[in-house]
Design a binder for these strands. Structure first.
Lengths: 253, 253
DNA sequence: AAATGTGAACTTTTTCACAGCA
DNA sequence: TGCTGTGAAAAAGTTCACATTT
């Protein structure tokens, strides 16, 4: 690395669409399950079903990574697991700090899928001095004062914020100042960060509100449906996750 | 579909884009904060900044709801709060059950923003008989056997699954059979549900993997940047959340 | 025969830029 | 004058359908 080269690494044209990146972990999970069952190969159709997406989308997604399948056969499970892991950066180990060891922080610390896939909890940090030293998920909680030291010593670049909303921005600023460049925010606040820092948020109440919106609409539809001869059959098992789910679009006049 | 009607209802063309729906809770939160500070009106620019989106997008989003602003002035905070709440279905009260009262379930039960905005925890349910009766967040945990009864008695239509992955599909099936039509899934599994049921998922490990992807790319870029005279200034405070975060596209020529 | 990989069509979402109103 | 509301353009994402390869 670090040469005077002006071109993108001879690899394949970078620029995997963000939507594709967001689905790679889904594929990886499905593939890992297959791998554990020692399934050697899988078709786009099968894998797509397991991941809950459609097969054309899956093939298109994989096409951004390269040609890892075999026509007439499908994909080699182990090989794909490796390729996707590599693409996601999971072949290296990412130390992560969790700040705010309340109920949620403890839940996160205990979350198994964490350690399993490339991530390692480097430290648990809480502002409450009473918590200091107390082990959570086998890791002793450290006081906020130690934050900068921990991040620098362990080379932490990913931080998880599970504090109350009021403390989140301040914690975020400290994390960023200490060198963290990716933040997963569970606090219900918009964080502002310098350029070059990634923030993703997970927000229970937003998810519930989106569900309520669709739920309300369903209720309206039912009322409308009552006025109509026969409600169309609802019950085809469909696999569908993510942002929408249905969005039918009927509506009373 | 069902009737012979071919035209859209006379109402304002329903069909708020899904992307817009997903942002409404964000606007609502920002507006609620303003309302608490007794701010009477707000411009699209200000509100957009508070919500972490750009103002054109916000205006476009609001335009799907109707014309609730005043040109030259901005939006009336209270009025908008009401309109968005109504649109999201938050003017009614949604009873919610949480299934799986481990660390995460407890965290969710204790989550304040829950009760505050239209949602009410109708019951906490766990498969462990030892948990039964134990109060969490002031609510006694009930055994899974009671699930169907609770859902029917309380008219619950939204369920939260916080069980281990292995139990999730089974719990989901029972919820759906009992009448739940919206599910928020915290278990790391793809749930399959009948048509007409909405599922949204929240998945810590997926979020971390997406961060790792970008983090890895940053590392690569840095190395590339070392070969270039001077790294462009990174540090303009930017507000940016959601799916991407940055995706800088530095790309040496 | 089976299943990938991908141009091309289509849909959704974002951004632009400005007319129109208070 | 200031700021909304929105057509129109651009970008991103999804789906189709089929030539290509094993």
């Amino acid at each position: 690395m670090a040469t005077g080269r002006t071109h993108r690494p001879a690899t394949r044209s970078r620029g995997i669409p963000e939507a594709t990146v967001a689905r790679l972990p889904l594929y990886l999970r499905a593939l890992t399950a297959l791998s554990e069952r020692s399934v050697p190969t899988v078709s786009s159709e099968e894998l797509a079903a397991a991941a809950g997406v459609n097969s054309a989308k899956l093939r298109k997604d994989f096409s951004y990574l390269g040609s890892y399948g075999t026509r007439g056969v499908g994909y080699d499970v182990e090989y794909l697991v490796y390729q996707i892991s590599r693409e996601l950066g999971l072949t290296q180990d990412w130390p992560v700090v969790i700040v705010g060891i309340g109920n949620l922080g403890a839940a996160l610390a205990n979350y198994g899928g964490f350690a399993s896939r490339g991530f390692r909890v480097a430290a648990l940090i809480d502002a409450d001095p009473g918590m200091a030293g107390k082990p959570v998920a086998g890791i002793p909680v450290q006081h906020t004062d130690e934050l900068e030291k921990i991040i620098q010593d362990d080379g932490v670049s990913i931080g998880v914020i599970a504090t109350p909303a009021g403390a989140a921005q301040q914690v975020c600023d400290r994390l960023v100042a200490a060198g963290v460049t990716s933040i997963l925010n569970f606090a219900p606040t918009v964080l502002s960060v310098p350029d070059g820092v990634d923030v993703r948020k997970v927000d229970l109440s937003i998810e519930l509100q989106i569900l309520a919106f669709h739920e309300q609409r369903k209720a309206g539809e039912e009322a409308a449906a009552d006025a109509v001869p026969h409600v169309a059959a609802r019950k085809q098992p469909s696999t569908d996750q993510g942002p929408d789910g249905d969005v039918p679009a009927v509506m009373p006049a």
